[in-house]
Amino acid sequence: MAELLRSEGPARPVTMPRGLKAWLVTGYADARALLADPRLSKDSGKAHELFARQAGVTSAETPALARHMLNSDPPDHTRLRKLVNKAFTARTVSRLRPRIEQITDDLLDTMAGADSADVMEKLASPLPITVICELLGVPEADRKAFSGWSNTILSAAAAGEIQQAGFLMNGYLTSLIEAKRESSTEDLLSDLAHVSENGDQLSPGELVAMAFLLLVAGHETTVNLIGNGVLALLRHPDQLAKLRSDPELLPNAVEEILRYDGPINLATLRFALEPVKVGDVEIPEGGFVVISLLGANRDGERFPEPEDLDITRATGGHLAFGHGIHYCVGAPLARLEAEIAIGRLLARFDDLTLVGDPGELRWRESTLVHGLETLPVRFR
């Protein structure tokens, strides 16, 4: 489909499921350029006004949880990102390896007593939610509820259901942060509640929105990266055999999985601050822009034979985590969790096969995330 869209032009008008009219970009070069183009804004307040004007309705107030750094422009984005960057450097994340390995091994132990299991239920979903909740300091008893809210917010559910999930999550995070402000604990959320950069500190509203972003983005991306990765390898037994014979290929295999079948369908919404030319197409001022990360990563002009999974491919430059100032802050953590989860799954079970027809697998209904609902496997 992406190849067909690219053949029709560099950008084409589309209507999104909730009626938003936008311009869809699927080519790699254009996508990469636009992801870093300062003429495209991510200001959530202005975006809500533009959408309301497009729909001919009165603009509603921007939801509190949406006022995070992913939905902001410099200088606000620069300030917010600076306050959280230190927590997600590759060096900082690497210190989490022993704990991630322990959680993974515990999850695999629960799978080992049977001859089949759902990888999404038993590994891909619980690992990232456990890691990010431990990192941020979310009590174990609350994690199931949080995961349910997150799934609803990122789904294609009815607007009322999404609003209710957002309301519940906002209330929960507000209470949790107030508790951490009163009594500091050893976790990232407590650190953020007290962090100061040259005297600057997150406001209560900014802190709630930041917690929401880190919790949702910190586990949703990784859930789907693990699930998509296991499925890709099972559907390409030659690549699976190659990885089993040379586990040193695992980091590159994760990068190829990110390129081949990444966890995010579309980059989050942008709009043009002025007319922007994409090839011979002009996107007007105020026009919304939707960038297909999956489409860009399957562009044959950038990646030869893009429909083939090749874990030895030089995959540098893929856009699975975005590009530019909004590049995913949690990318190092997602990579580490995927390497550990996939590597240890393959090491534990030497005869792993997919149950049923791949074409019958159910994918989540979402324009944003690209992931499976279930992934049944059989093993020894």
Rank of each mutant, 00 (worst) to 15 (best):
A31E: 05
L35M: 07
N198G: 14
E248K: 11
A331E: 08
E101G: 11
C328Y: 13
R302A: 04
V216D: 01
A156L: 13
N71C: 11
L35F: 03
R270S: 12
T312L: 08
A338G: 13
E121T: 05
I177D: 10
T367R: 10
V25F: 00
F303V: 00
L258Y: 03
M210C: 09
L345I: 05
E255Y: 11
L250H: 08
T221R: 02
D118H: 04
A347Q: 08
R95K: 15
E337V: 01
D43W: 02
R91I: 10
R235H: 07
E360D: 15
F271C: 02
S245M: 12
S7F: 12
D118K: 09
L249K: 06
K82W: 02
D73C: 11
E140V: 14
R53T: 14
E220R: 01
V254A: 10
M111G: 01
Q102F: 10
A165M: 04
D106Y: 08
L213E: 00
S41W: 02
A217W: 03
N85L: 07
G137A: 09
I342H: 05
G56P: 02
V119P: 03
V84T: 10
P74K: 14
E121H: 07
R97L: 01
T26I: 01
D118P: 08
T130M: 12
R364H: 07
P284H: 14
I129E: 04
R362M: 12
V93N: 10
L215A: 15
R380L: 12
Y28C: 01
Y327S: 01
E305K: 15
R335S: 08
V195W: 02
E49V: 06
L135W: 00
H370P: 02
R298Q: 05
L136F: 14
A334R: 02
R79Q: 03
L250S: 07
F212S: 06
V131P: 09
R335A: 11
